[in-house]
Design a protein around this nucleic acid. Structure first.
Length: 922
RNA sequence: AGGACUAUAGCUCAGUUGGUUAGAGCGCUACCUUGACAUGGUAGAGGUCCCCAGUUCGAAUCUGGGUAGUCCUACCA
């Protein structure tokens, strides 16, 4: 074995082996366990969030596979309509062409080409993480089977009246030329203005003043609204106003939506370009005047003078024109929420168009109930509130998109505007008995990407066929995802699955936090703070990192800033930490219910942990290879104290790790493993094995027992650790397992260690704690007195009880070795003690004679520090016990515990004070 | 505006039903190449558990009120 752990070669070798041998496919077990991966964008690449979530899913999957469950981790990718189409359009633009020049068919071909070219990136990266996905079942949301499921769902929902077409105000993205759903709009505060305009009363006696943040929409005003109880304007209700620049007259109406305190208390109403105004327009039967075209330039029924003008140019022009007419009263600064497309970043326009909708309200009822009655549980639970509040106020879901990349809507129109929904034109003709000469054209639009994602848990298993997989693996066990797509995806999956399967899509939703950078900032390309999980695995030099982070930056200033920050944070680039270290870092940070600041320091620590594991195995192999490791049950072996202790600790750790994984506390699982492996197995057990293995006097039975324990405990914790660190555990297990009497082609399919409570050994624990106490006591004296670590010491024991005597008797060789003592002896009660430094373990006093070694003042300082600590503690306990209400009201066992503690502390204090006296008198 | 979450060591975070000497990792200090590992070992320093009030014999933990931060939803033209 190499002296240090070298992950790179090991990882690629093992992953290939696992995949080639088909270990990822479901097998065995009557109990099914399944996870459907949240399908990443097929042309995307892996980010830290994927890395984190996949690490968690893989741990769950490997854990259940080792438990012997019939385990499926379903893999697949998403066509990601808008995102993918945008990428390809940008490429076309760079080539000096456009999708419109190509035409629909050629364009879609191009996108498929791009999919074939770049579609392997993310799946390759997922392999690098060690994800044990069943690649033989890989699906794509636009492959044949899933497309069939999409069509089936659309047609059935339409038949049931749950999908309908309607002309409504939608969120229109003027750069992408498509409608988007409410969820795809992000509002943020931006600085703007509040313009106050005078609208003259028809008839000419005076005016009223309206305030607006969007002057250009006044071209489409069809009313001015005031509050019904607003005395200032009561006399105007029902009168007409001459709308400037348009030659139209519009009424003054009363509606209690109007806030009297805001602006002037008069609101211009533009039903075709504002959601609130749209509702008010419907209430009052106002006309809807569209004044925009698809680019959000002025169009429609706007006055000819403005037609064709860009919306922001029109705004300036209209303000100027009104000003020229003397109708501009004032302009105030005003911050407002501006809605922008989450993909395009441009300002979204409310726009009247024909779109397809899902009646979400009807589907929401059962979906709410499923969470209310616990059929689906969120972890952590507080996300259920977020889910409920959205679901109880759900709006109909606009599912049509004016794109070319996606599932085309299975609807056909005749020349009279009739709509026919069916699986194909032929099917539609047949069903509706339409004559062949009657021309039909298919709806141009495609479905929202999330429509197909909503079917993911069952469409991947072969639905609408009633396949065996569907019967076995659906509902899936758990969904692992981020809170940011609870509405986009989780809620819609629950609705669709309940409707079509009459069962939940998953029993548990484990909501992970977001991975942020070390300052708590969201990682984003434009901030230049993105970490690529693959770079953490393989390492990256500074120049590559800088050029990666600044590539494609439109603003040179920003690029320079990013470069500077990157050079400062990673002056040496990023070291190669390996997959296991990265994964373990994710687990250690994965406490539930909070976002994760990714601290690069952590991964280094866990890389070191890998190295520790590697070297522990090296030590074990050096001492066990070619030796009798006690696997021949006919030969007697003897388990010493340390052996019994570490076996018991292993049981405790096994129980803890299982408990943690079952409750999705990967931070606790990783911590339990780290602590056991490093602080107990390596720091203490391996050290305690040396005196036995290296002692020529030790019996063959004792050595056999020690080797047996060394190798068997190691083999067990490798399995215990495997779901979190798959590669290093597999590599080491291959060499270790045979010595532990285990065999098999892979650790992946070995049984997961089960805790055996009967092997826990509290007597051994107590003895080891005593032993540690004595050793640490002596080391403390050595450390604080500046006695060289190599210097052999003499220790005298005094005032011990029978347990102390037995323990010392049994463990003298360990004490000698681990505390570096050349001599240990008991001091009789009458015997005069030499000048010495002291440590206490219970009542037992350990004296390290000071002759020539110890600085008297240093020892006094050390003692008085200890005395002060005890005095403070004692005062606290005494205070409690002198308080009659504590003694009276606290439970008896708590009081008793305090009494015992006080007794022990008093005795220790007395011993230390006496020692202090003795030293002083020297 | 409504709601959720967070506040514990220099940094990143644990802390289960109220009773612990409040813990871990990283960082820091001192010493040490001892036959698995310097990606290591040993010892150590470091905390007003955000603030105030309350409940209680007892509060990091429970209740109320503040402060600060993060986020979600809905928005006033």
């Amino acid at each position: 074995m190499e002296k240090t752990f070298q992950p790179a070669e090991i990882e690629s070798r093992w992953y290939q082996e696992w995949e080639n041998k088909g270990y990822f496919a479901p097998r065995g077990g009557d109990k099914a366990y399944s996870i459907m991966i949240p399908p990443p964008n097929v042309t995307g690449s892996l980010h830290m969030g994927h890395g984190f979530q996949n690490a968690i899913m893989d741990a769950l999957i490997r854990y259940h596979r080792m438990l012997g469950d019939n385990t499926l981790w379903q893999v697949g990718t998403d066509h990601a309509g808008i995102a993918t189409q945008m990428v390809v359009e940008r490429q076309l633009e760079a080539q000096g062409t456009s999708r419109h020049e190509l035409g629909r068919e050629k364009f879609v071909e191009k996108v498929w080409e791009w999919k074939h070219q770049s579609g392997g990136t993310i799946t390759r990266q997922m392999r690098r993480l060690g994800a044990s996905l069943d690649w033989s079942r890989e699906r794509f949301t636009m492959d044949e089977g899933l497309s069939r499921a999409v069509q089936e769902v659309f047609i059935r929902l339409h038949r049931e009246g749950l999908i309908y077409r309607g002309k409504r105000l939608v969120n229109w993205d003027p750069s992408l030329h498509t409608a988007v759903s409410d969820l795809e709009v992000e509002s943020s505060e931006e600085k703007g203005h509040l313009w106050h305009f005078r609208y003259p009363l028809a008839g000419g006696e005076g005016h009223l003043v309206v305030a607006t943040t969007r002057p250009e929409t006044m071209l489409g005003d069809t009313a001015v609204a005031v509050h019904p109880e607003d005395e200032r304007y009561a006399h105007l209700i029902g009168r007409m106003v001459a709308l400037p620049l348009t030659g139209r007259e519009i009424p003054v109406i009363a509606d209690d939506y109007v806030d009297r305190e805001f602006g002037t208390g008069c609101v211009k109403i533009t039903p075709a370009h504002d959601f609130n105004d749209y509702e008010m327009g419907k209430r009052h039967g106002l006309p809807m005047i569209n004044i925009l075209d698809d680019d959000a330039a002025i169009g429609g029924e706007a006055p000819a003078a403005y037609i064709g003008m860009d919306r922001f140019e029109a705004r300036r022009k209209i303000v100027a024109d009104l000003d020229a007419l003397g109708l501009l009263e004032k302009i105030d600064d005003h911050t407002l929420k501006v809605p922008r497309g989450d993909r395009s970043g441009v300002v979204i326009e409310p726009y009247l168009t024909d779109q397809w909708y899902v009646d979400a309200r009807a589907l929401a009822g059962p979906a709410i109930e499923a969470v209310e009655n616990g059929s689906i549980q969120f972890v952590p639970k507080n996300y259920e509130n977020m889910y409920f509040s959205w679901m109880r106020d759900i709006q109909d879901w606009c599912i049509s998109r004016q794109l070319w990349w996606g599932h085309r809507i299975p609807a056909w129109y005749d020349d009279h505007g009739n709509v026919y929904v069916g699986e194909s034109e032929a099917a539609v003709r047949e069903e509706h008995q339409l004559a062949d000469e009657m021309s039909l054209r298919q709806d141009e639009d495609v479905l929202d990407t999330w429509f197909s994602s909503a079917l993911w848990t069952f469409s991947t298993l072969g639905w609408p066929e009633e396949t065996e997989e569907l019967a076995t693996f659906h509902p899936s066990s758990v969904l692992v995802t981020g809170f940011d797509i609870i509405f986009f995806w989780v809620a819609r999956m629950i609705m669709m699955t309940l409707h079509f399967r009459k069962e939940v899509p998953f029993h548990t939703v484990y909501v992970t936090g977001l991975i942020r950078d070390e300052d708590g900032q969201k990682m984003s390309k434009s901030k230049g703070n993105v970490l690529d999980p693959i770079d953490l695995i393989d390492g990256v030099d500074l120049e590559s990192l800088v050029s990666k982070r600044t590539a494609g930056m439109m603003q040179p200033k920003l690029a320079a800033k990013i470069e500077k920050a990157t050079r400062k944070q990673f002056p040496e680039g990023i070291a190669a930490y390996g997959t296991d270290a990265l994964r373990f870092t994710f687990y250690s940070l994965a406490s539930t219910g909070r976002d994760i600041k990714f601290d690069i320091g952590r991964i280094e620590g866990y890389r070191n942990f890998c190295n520790k594991i590697w070297n522990a195995a090296r030590y074990v192999m050096m001492n066990c290879e070619g030796e009798d490791c006690g696997q021949d049950e006919s030969l007697a072996y003897e388990l010493g104290l340390a052996d019994r202790w570490i076996i018991g600790k292993l049981q405790e750790t096994e129980a803890e790790v299982s408990r943690a994984i079952t409750s999705y506390r990967f931070d606790l699982a990783s911590q339990a493993l780290y602590e056991f492996i490093w602080n107990e197995y390596c720091d203490w057990y391996l050290e305690l094995s040396k005196p036995v293995l290296w002692d020529e006097q030790a019996s063959a039975e004792a050595k056999r027992g020690t080797r047996r324990t060394l190798i068997r405990v190691l083999e067990a914790w490798l399995r215990l650790l495997h779901p979190l660190m798959p590669f290093i555990t597999e590599e080491i297990w291959q060499t270790v397992a045979p010595l532990a009497g285990k065999s098999g082609p892979t650790i992946m399919l070995q049984p997961y260690p089960q805790s055996a409570p009967e092997a826990m050994d509290s007597a051994a624990n107590a003895d080891i704690e005593w032993l540690k106490g004595v050793i640490v006591g002596i080391r403390n004296i050595r450390g604080e007195m500046n006695i060289p670590p190599g210097k052999q010491l003499t220790a005298l024991m005094r005032n011990g009880d029978n347990d102390d005597k037995r323990r010392l008797q049994e463990n003298a060789p360990f004490l000698r070795k681990l505390a570096r003592l050349e001599e240990i002896s008991w001091l009789d009660s009458g015997e005069e003690a030499p000048a010495a430094a002291t440590a206490l373990v219970g009542q037992l006093e350990i004296l390290v004679p000071m002759a020539g070694l110890i600085d008297k003042d240093a020892e006094l300082a050390r003692l008085s520090k200890e005395v002060a600590r005890l005095e403070k503690d004692l005062a606290r306990i005494a205070g409690k016990l002198n308080n009659s209400s504590f003694v009276g009201k606290a439970p008896a066992d708590v009081v008793e515990k305090e009494r015992e503690k006080m007794l022990a502390q008093e005795q220790a204090l007395q011993q230390l004070r006496e020692q202090e006296q003795r030293i002083r008198q020297m």
